[in-house]
């Protein structure tokens, strides 16, 4: 009994220590910096007492941050919905495919992870540019007369987000759909439900955990995304991750950047906690 308790502690301690050291401690440091003031020096801030609310006032006062926040939520929401609409049929088809083909299809979903995320997103610029492959092809075919604005706008950002995070939607959906007992659908059909009704009343509600897991896995990183708005976005598609990057590296304003980071965590953490609560009940 005592031994097993010790064993448990021994197993649980390292990950907890890890999280404490590399997640909680940095977070507290960032929180502290957000109450500091910028300074010219190394590090580029000073901490004083009483804590300075200067960077939080900037955050509240400048509409740029609010817009970046709103954009992050908006683009992440649209991207999540698109991923769901695209990913659900994909996951469904994979789950229903016969054994060997299923493995192959799953491999195709995972395959993009084998190349750098940055390179994959950058490659899209080659396709979407005004003189990129897609526009050149459409012009050559005579379907358009002037290049379409495919990037440096909201379209480019959402496209990039959907492309980047689609696998995170497909995989959890696949996991729940694959477990779904096919006899339940036969039972529904036997009781007079058309395939559409059977899907809406049996498949969809039973795959809700997968929908939720996939949506969170897409929404959270998409809302904090920096690479996609940087490469495919424009001046009107500021997202919080991009602003954060600029504050840190371009403006070297660590306190504001830290305040942004904390606000982002709250922004993403609160809905997550609410969702968890709703789901548990």
């Amino acid at each position: 009994m005592i031994e097993s308790k010790r064993l448990r502690a021994g197993i649980l301690l390292p990950p907890y220590l890890w999280l404490l050291l590399f997640f909680l401690a940095p977070f507290l440091i960032v929180l502290a910096i957000s109450f500091g003031e910028t300074a010219i020096g190394v590090p580029p801030f000073t901490l004083g007492w009483p804590p300075s609310l200067f960077s939080w006032e900037i955050l509240a006062g400048d509409s740029l941050y609010l817009r970046a926040w709103g954009n992050s939520l908006l683009f992440a929401t649209i991207a999540t919905l698109c991923c769901l609409l695209l990913g659900y049929p994909m996951a469904y088809a994979i789950a229903r495919a016969p054994g060997r083909r299923r493995d192959l299809l799953l491999l195709f979903v995972i395959l993009p992870f084998w190349t750098s995320f940055l390179i994959r997103v950058y490659a899209w610029t080659g396709l979407l540019r005004p003189n990129g492959t897609i526009n050149e092809a459409l012009l050559w075919l005579g379907l358009i007369e002037a290049p379409l604005p495919l990037m440096n706008n909201a379209f480019g950002v959402v496209l990039g987000l959907v492309y980047s995070y689609l696998p995170f939607m497909v995989l959890p959906l696949y996991a729940t759909l694959e477990k779904l007992d096919a006899t339940l659908l036969e039972a529904a059909a036997d009781l007079g439900a058309t395939p559409r009704r059977a899907f809406l009343s049996v498949t969809l509600p039973l795959s809700l955990p997968g929908i939720l897991a996939g949506s969170l896995l897409v929404f959270i990183p998409a809302a904090g995304e920096f690479v996609v708005p940087d490469l495919l976005g424009g001046p009107d598609t500021l997202m919080i991750g991009k602003v954060l990057w600029d504050e840190f590296f371009t403006n070297r304003d660590w306190p504001v950047a830290s305040a942004l980071a904390v606000s982002m965590l709250v922004l993403l953490g609160v809905p997550l906690a609410l969702l968890r609560r709703a789901f548990a009940s």
Binding site: T183, L184, D190, L191, T194, S201, V202, L206
Partner: peptide, 30 residues
């Protein structure tokens, strides 16, 4: 003729009860 248009009902070996519905909703499904 698909299953949902046949004047036939089946009791499955595994029972195939809908786990996300109450007993009454299961019985009333058809």
């Amino acid at each position: 003729v698909p299953p949902y248009r046949r004047p036939v009902n089946m009791m499955f070996q595994s029972y195939a009860l809908f786990p996300h519905m109450s007993v009454a909703a299961n019985i009333g499904y058809g």
